[in-house]
Nucleic acid binder design. Structure first.
Length: 571
RNA sequence: CGGGGUGUAGCGCAGCGGCUAGCGCGCAUGGUUUGGGACCAUGAAGUCGGUGGUUCGAAUCCACUCACCCCGACCA
């Protein structure tokens, strides 16, 4: 490709709305352009990188036994009503009306469609297993798109759905996909970690996410360097350190004027926060729930939502709290009636806690679980903490941030039952197909790759997903011999299948070098009067500082073998 | 959905009652340059987000509205 013909130009200044690196560089390098909130066009350069990723994913899906197919974005609401997942998608679902007033949805995912498809095509255990996938755009009206390509409303996703006759089959399909995913990230030149995950709106049983670890990531993970335990913070557990276990003392009131937060109260009474009980209120499907947890822990809302089995949950507003008669800031589970109380199991770890008195400016000392208050549920709803012991091996756990670039689920049979995807097994029994689903967001993976691979000058593409492999950069190309040598090398490289971006623009060296760094093509070749004096060209990797000179003689072949060596060596 | 913010040339911004709306980058033409975002000259490019109002006069003040951004809620 000749740079002079390439659509899109680089920008010196980042768009003012770019808050993360990948967004800024993608726009500055002329790879994407925003069309609307969370809606982007890909320009040729960005699309080439995208297609590299897409091809790697397709190859791995095929290698794992997947069959590619295509399903519509336009989906009838009836299928969503049938599957019962409408409430969990709710406003996230884009809907529209056809000319007859019939409501349709723009598919946020395709489990409903594929299950319906399988219902018509799979009748016998002989038709199973099936691994079916698609690489298509999906639509979700996100409450808040952000970060350029990291969280958008229209996005490309590879989704594979597995259909098996029994649990052993599901385990096997799941295992194949986990391996395929590891292959994909590694072939893209990226290092991803697999973590245990909450299954969220998709529903189902076991679930894992694949994370690219970057500081700017919006997900937090807990991991154990000693045994390898790793989980999304939404799912993670850690061992809660026991508090002081003393003989129970009599409850007494203590005046705490104006002190509302745990830190203020603990500071005032000169005790540590693990000697206190914290009260938090949520509204779950319209019902107020009182949550009590030891003061040094935070509530993990995902866990809470799961134990309450509710579809909509939010922190109670001031007004909602007051309606229940609770005194905000001084709330207490003691003597509370008519409200569901959920206690974290940390309230059992310790004694003689300080808790609210349900009375303005007052707390209670020496509060003990069971003696002074009870709970409707006593469960683990605490956020796991770095530093606390790992649940597997008891060594201290650590925390990292990451970007979710893949998610796999064991769905089980709830969708096949709802949508009627049944088969006859060997014994003639009528059974629901057992499902799994496995998704990768392509645009997000592209952006995450940049978050993980860049410097202050620009992108540093891993070779396998770079839009071009080589940036050919003649300098002083009004000198006839430079132009001639560059043209020749460009033709030779192209002829043997090397992907070259040929910077044939009449620009100064500084402009070309800076664009080369910004766009981030892995290998840069410079031809100038200086190199021609030695009958050579300068070769430099984007990720490295130093360059070397190689003879022009047979250079195209030399470059090709350097590239294939590098591709083989990539992680 | 709550709070905050921004809409002026392709991009980044200034102008915030006074008449022909500016700057930098980019773009076009010509010339001089050429190993890390060169320089000179000339030039093209704007319904000042939209609607309505106040005023002799509105990019500027007011109201409404739309779009976009940030924080939170929420969310693969």
């Amino acid at each position: 490709m000749r740079f002079s013909r390439l659509l899109g130009r680089s920008l010196k200044e980042a768009p003012s709305d770019a808050e993360c690196i990948s967004h800024s560089y993608l726009v500055r390098a002329g790879m994407i352009q925003q069309v609307s909130t969370g809606v982007y066009s890909y320009l040729p350069l960005g699309w080439r990188a995208f297609r590299k990723i897409e091809n790697i994913i397709r190859e791995e899906m095929d290698a794992a036994g997947g069959q590619e197919l295509m399903m519509p974005s336009l989906q009838p609401m009836e299928l969503w009503e049938k599957s019962g997942r409408l409430p969990s998608f709710d406003k996230t679902l884009f809907t529209l009306k056809d000319r007859k007033g019939h409501v349709m949805a723009l598919g946020p995912t395709h489990e409903e469609i594929i299950t319906d498809l399988v219902r018509h095509t799979v009748q016998s255990y002989r038709d199973l297993p099936q691994l079916l996938y698609q690489i298509q755009n999906k639509f979700r009206d996100e409450p808040r798109p952000r970060g350029g390509l990291l969280r958008v409303r229209e996005f490309f996703m590879k989704d594979l759905y597995s259909f098996d006759a029994d649990d052993a089959g599901l385990d096997e399909s799941y295992g194949k996909m986990v391996q395929a995913y590891k292959n994909i990230y590694s072939r893209c030149g990226l290092s991803a970690v697999m973590v245990e995950a909450d299954s969220g709106a998709i529903g189902g049983k076991a679930s894992h996410e694949f994370m690219l670890l970057v500081e700017s990531g919006e997900d937090e993970i807990i991991f154990c360097p000693a045994c390898g335990y790793a989980a999304n913070i939404e799912k993670a557990t850690s061992i809660k350190p026991a508090g002081k276990n003393e003989a129970m003392l009599a409850v007494e009131e203590v005046a705490t004027p104006g002190l509302r937060s745990i830190d203020e109260v603990a500071g005032f009474l000169n005790i540590t926060t693990d000697r206190t009980l914290k009260s938090v209120f949520y509204v779950c499907d319209g019902q107020v729930v009182f949550v009590v947890i030891r003061g040094d822990f935070e509530v993990n809302e995902t866990k809470l939502k799961n134990v309450l089995k509710c579809t909509e949950m939010h922190m109670a507003t001031e007004a909602e709290v007051q309606q229940t008669g609770i005194v905000a800031g001084y709330a207490s589970p003691i003597g509370l009636e008519g409200i569901k109380i959920v206690a974290d199991d940390s309230v059992k770890l310790g004694s003689n806690f300080v808790a609210g008195a349900n009375k303005q400016d007052t707390h209670l000392k020496n509060v003990n679980f069971l003696r002074d208050f009870k709970a409707d549920m006593i469960v683990d709803i605490a956020k796991a903490r770095a530093g606390d012991p790992c649940p597997r091996c008891q060594k201290p756990a650590k925390t990292e941030r990451g970007i979710e670039v893949g998610h796999v689920f064991k769905l089980g049979t709830f969708l096949s039952e709802k949508l009627g995807a049944y088969f006859l097994d060997r014994e003639g029994n009528y059974k629901p197909v057992i499902m799994g689903c496995y998704g990768i967001g392509l645009g997000r993976l592209l952006a995450a790759a940049i978050e993980q691979n860049h410097d202050e000058k620009g992108i540093i593409w891993p070779l396998p997903i770079a839009p071009f492999q080589v940036y050919l950069c003649p300098i002083k190309d009004d000198a006839a011999d430079v132009a001639r040598a560059a043209e020749k090398l460009y033709n030779n490289l192209t002829a043997i299948g090397v992907e070259v971006l040929f910077d044939d623009r009449p620009e100064s060296p500084g402009v070309k070098f800076n664009d080369a760094d910004l766009i981030g093509i892995p290998l840069r070749i410079v031809i100038s009067p200086r190199t021609l004096r030695e009958n050579a060209a300068e070769i430099k990797w984007r990720k490295e500082k130093d360059s070397q000179h190689l003879p022009l003689e047979g250079l195209a072949e030399t470059i090709k073998s350097i590239l294939s060596k590098a591709l083989d060596a990539s992680p």
